[in-house]
Design a protein around this nucleic acid. Structure first.
Lengths: 338, 338
DNA sequence: TTGAAAGCGCTAACAG
DNA sequence: CTGTTAGCGCTTTCAA
């Protein structure tokens, strides 16, 4: 159809000329506020037609400059390498668009500096609101944004200065641990404590999960070996290294494990296959995360799936309500057996 | 630090007042073009300090409105539910930022209407360039953008109106098929043709992969059963249904399969586990896609990993070169054994 | 070395 | 019912 480079883009002035009317009429028609301006449907019709013919596209930059709210909503997210964040991003986009918001998303790879820089950039783009997902340092983001009068919400990992929506990690971890303990007892014929691996000891979620892990052991009347609590970070290699180190410094890991994410599970499985220290048929696993392939892994793996739709609904409810009290909303996760 | 709602955001005029200078000086200093304007480093210093104190943030909308190029680069992507697109998005963001571009990404869920709408929105946001990843109808996007003088590139799935960067699907599929045929023969003790499942028959990549699949069978001197070519779509359920249907209409699927994506593989594995029609230990699989957990699935699965870094490097080379000839660049994929 | 001023494309009063 | 006009915040000549 159209060929090359119309050096200048069509503006409402061009359309106004073509239609023999004024820019404001064009603007009103194109925004749908034309009944309010009681523009003749004739003119409206004509303008729409011409806009269409010319392939007119609104210049958002100009439009936003004039408007008060940008209707842009930002989100920062740590990684795209697992189903959890993938589904958060996908659903967030969908829900945002359904509300007439324009979502912009940035991946900050668990790097606090990048997080701040991304937040700054988003401020430049006039976001009305910023969701900090799994942020390493959510409070600094909130401070930065507050200085420009921009609202912030924390998702997945809580902060102390803005509303946070997170999974009920304690309850989820406790139940997951309970199930793994039961499976373990069934399998081994005796009660045995588990190993905890993955995640950052410093982050709230991991801390809460460890708390749930301990609680379940207490409920079960089994003592935990402190050397078996290994919040070694997120990368698969870190889990592998942590297990190697455990071996190097003495004993074997137990047959049952609580793995803190699919990413860590990747490392655990590789380690099991590589070293053969544990019988890969009899190992009993629980994973605080969900992935469709994990379910097919063959071992009896319990998984916790975080309830992304519920979490995001809550996020948008808070946005709609206008609240900005730094309360933490905990969403129960979904436990799914094998 | 700052408390609540500075109803008005700080502008360069505020800074100018505070510094007792003019907006243009502030603008120049904040943009780093101040040696060119030979502004005293005293003034520059002072302006920077004040900007900092006030937590000044540039208003991109205003800035872009005045500038010629936006330095915004858009990408549309079909899904976030697999490693392939996840790594594309993550690396794209990183590379774009490294070049001083601002990436905006939108997920269009393989919906041609959404793709167009997303493209339109991105045009409104003045993107300088748009990457259509795995687009269902890339040419319409190119046409739409061309009408506004915006460049387009196709990634993953080719179009006929803009440069395309895709995987060498034919060669990859041929080699993958060959390997599976060999594994199959080793396992079963005799040559046997494979089943092809997953993907859209109408898309270029799937067509090319089927071509490679056929070619490898020809090389091997084995005839293909046409009823075993099942480009049933992408969702896992579709693969399950396709296999159910195959069973319903007669024979068993062969022991060896070429699965067109991890998403389809999910369906295949579920079907195998659910129906027990095939021995899930002896089934021989190849997957034109890569996922870390698939490697751990226990069956001997060959995988093809598309070379995302090479593909994106090519994309940015083309962008830098300014070319817009609709040539297709094929990037060899990485075959990784088990 | 610096400031004044025009104008990017659009929206929203305010006059007709 | 419709057009004129005044900016939104910034960049960029052009003068001084």
């Amino acid at each position: 159809m159209s060929s090359l480079k119309p050096a200048k883009r069509t503006t409402i002035y061009d359309l106004a000329d073509l239609a023999g009317t004024s820019a404001s009429a064009v603007s009103a028609v194109l925004n749908g506020n034309w009944k309010k301006r009681r523009i003749s449907s004739q003119l409206a019709e004509k303008i729409m037609r011409i806009a269409d013919e010319q392939g007119y596209a609104l210049n958002m930059q100009a439009s936003l400059l004039r408007r008060d709210k940008s209707h842009i909503i930002g989100m920062i997210v740590p990684k795209y390498d697992n189903r959890y964040f993938g589904s958060i991003v996908e659903l967030f986009e969908e829900m945002a668009r359904a509300r007439g918001l324009f979502p912009i998303i940035t991946c900050t790879r668990r790097d606090p500096e990048l997080e701040l820089e991304a937040a700054r950039t988003m401020l430049s783009y006039q976001v009305d609101c910023l969701i900090a997902t799994g942020a390493t340092d959510p409070d600094r983001i909130t401070e930065l944004c507050a200085a420009s009068g921009v609202r912030t919400l924390n998702l997945d990992l809580p902060g102390s200065l803005a509303p946070s929506v997170i999974t009920d990690n304690f309850a989820g971890a406790r139940e997951l641990t309970r199930r793994v303990l039961v499976n373990c007892e069934r399998r081994l014929g005796r009660r045995q404590s588990l190993l905890f691996i993955g995640g950052r000891g410093s982050d709230h979620n991991t801390a809460e999960r460890i708390r749930g892990f301990r609680e379940a052991h207490a409920d079960f009347g089994v003592a935990i070996d402190e050397a078996h609590i290994l919040p070694c970070g997120y990368a698969p290699e870190k889990a592998e290294k942590a297990l190697d180190k455990l071996i190097a410094s003495g004993g074997l890991p137990p047959q049952g494990m609580f793995v803190n994410s699919t990413i860590s599970l990747e490392g655990v499985m590789r380690w099991v296959r590589r070293t053969g220290h544990l019988d890969d048929r009899s190992i009993v696993l629980g994973c605080f995360d969900w992935d469709p392939f994990v379910a097919l892994l063959g071992n009896e793996i319990e998984m916790v799936k975080q309830d992304v739709p519920a979490m995001l609904s809550t996020v948008f409810e808070i946005i709609d309500s206008g609240a900005s009290t730094p309360a933490i909303t905990q969403v129960p996760p979904l436990l799914s057996g094998f």
